[in-house]
Write a protein that binds this DNA or RNA. Sequence first.
DNA 1: ACGATATATTTCGACAAGGGTATATTCGTT
DNA 2: AACGAATATACCCTTGTCGAAATATATCGT
Lengths: 106, 106
Amino acid sequence: MLSTFEVLSSAVRRDIIAQLRRGPSSVSDLNEALGISQPVVSKHLRVLRDTGFVRVRPEGQRRWYELRTEPFREVDQWLEPYRWMWEDRLDRLGRHLDAQREENQS
Amino acid sequence: MLSTFEVLSSAVRRDIIAQLRRGPSSVSDLNEALGISQPVVSKHLRVLRDTGFVRVRPEGQRRWYELRTEPFREVDQWLEPYRWMWEDRLDRLGRHLDAQREENQS
DNA sequence: ACGATATATTTCGACAAGGGTATATTCGTT
DNA sequence: AACGAATATACCCTTGTCGAAATATATCGT
């Protein structure tokens, strides 16, 4: 099972994700919109599904894939302790210093 | 040259980055703090340097590595068009719908 | 200049990811 | 039941990454 960042390390998968931002798509939709062969699309969607990036809703012979939010939240949370470095908000800096203190105590 | 997400896909590199969050470190610092062999540390730092995650400041025989902000901003910007999905702020949703309209026009 | 310490690079082998092609499965239609 | 469309999986091959070990480079102290 790949980690969240491993999933995002593939440009093809990021393209699929970006396309799904426009709304749910079937495999053939993605195949045509992105010019990626059907088996490759299916394989990547399998990875995206296993890692929680998408969920699938079968409707007849079509399978509609749509984005889920958890992995994005995860990236956002990972980013959190680094934000003080470039966001010049005083409260961020303050919270960072507090967190620093906590870490150094343990 | 690896892309930003490819760099972050390595758990070892994320560990190095997290350690550098505490402040600048030398190779041997990272070697001891993380239990990673010296050549491996150097090699990952090379990658992190080539991709803008860190910069190096030589001081005698030591080389101090410290974080740079650009790649983090990049991740933050990549995340931006997905934020409306889980952040329930009305302005985010509004801006998202505006952006949607723009995209569909082109 | 020499030895020691700190860091960088090279080489190698193991391993896994990615895509192409072929094939299997599933479901609707007739 | 048979066929066709949509999707999933299996297999193969190529390629790139990772870490280990060995070696090279740089800088300081003497």
